[in-house]
């Protein structure tokens, strides 16, 4: 199924008309959001299939975070529809977030809480939980479990945020600037783990400024500019269609080419 770059709606419709009743992990239609008189999202569409890693790209202020916050039901949309795992993020909050994990880039923690307490308390909120000791081990935090969060480095806090997002055995993961602050080795570890999760059918929505990461991990990407979708599709195909060497080059050219549109 070939998808023309930028033809988001067709892509979504094709999936929906597919005949089978597989519920999309994320289904967003015509999402509009404005702050006072400034439009942050203008008719944003997004479909993320089960077991897919989806990259949400764009400059700072492009609307990525607003899109994620609207999808999570924290921000109120002005128009459009949002379904996560077939559920409404506002109405079905409690049951939905049993199945969704979230990691925000700048999330802080209470300083005096120990790592293990942080995990234990998070785990107690979910009906079905992963073995958080195993997760700590996987993310090389097991030695730090007795330490307070204030004693962790920035990268370790970032990894703890990911562990927290994974504690509830999510079917859908939102990861915001996942590997910012991580050393190259830790980044690689996280990438491999995300691939493993994808193999287990977990859907992931990833926002990132690292194009190598997106290219390596994502099955599909959407590039946002000033609240509008610029292109949408598989990274490899997009690179070929636009005749670029890699996603980084493509991203930069798209940002340049569409300056007129943004105006």
């Amino acid at each position: 199924m070939d998808v023309e770059p930028g033809n988001t709606k067709d892509h979504c419709d094709l999936i929906n008309k597919g005949g089978n009743k597989v519920v999309d992990a994320v289904n967003v239609r015509n999402l509009c959001k404005s702050y006072d008189d400034k439009s942050a999202l203008r008719g944003f569409d997004l479909t993320v299939k089960k077991g897919e890693i989806f990259g949400l790209l764009g400059h700072n202020g492009a609307g990525k975070t607003t899109a994620v916050e609207c999808m999570l039901g924290i921000r109120k949309k002005n128009a459009g529809s949002i379904k996560l795992l077939g559920l409404d993020p506002v109405i079905d909050r409690r049951s939905l977030f049993q199945r969704v994990g979230v990691q925000f880039q700048h999330t802080g923690f209470q300083d005096k809480i120990r790592v293990e307490e942080c995990c234990r308390l998070s785990a107690s909120l979910y009906d079905n939980t992963a073995d958080w000791m195993e997760l700590l081990e996987k993310f090389r935090l097991i030695d730090k479990k007795r330490q307070t969060v204030s004693d962790l480095s920035g990268g370790e806090k970032q990894k703890l945020a990911v562990v927290q997002a994974l504690i509830g055995k999510p079917e859908l993961l939102f990861l915001d600037e996942l590997t910012t602050g991580l050393d190259p080795e830790a980044r690689r570890d996280v990438w491999e783990y995300l691939k493993e999760l994808r193999g287990n059918g977990v859907s992931i929505v990833l926002t990132s400024h690292f194009m190598d990461e997106v290219e390596y991990l994502c099955d599909n990407v959407v590039v946002l500019k000033q609240g509008k979708t610029v292109v949408y599709g598989e990274p490899e195909k997009l690179i070929n269609v636009y005749g670029k060497r890699n996603l980084d080059e493509l991203f930069l050219s798209l940002m340049k080419d569409n300056q007129g549109d943004a105006a």
């Binding site: 999570l72 924290i74 909050r93 049951s95 802080g108």
Partner: peptide, 18 residues
């Protein structure tokens, strides 16, 4: 207010807690 300062309120609201 501290949760807002730490940017952790959004995360708290994204947990399965009413």
């Amino acid at each position: 207010a501290g949760e807002k300062e730490r940017n952790s309120l959004e995360l708290l609201l994204s947990n399965p807690v009413s």
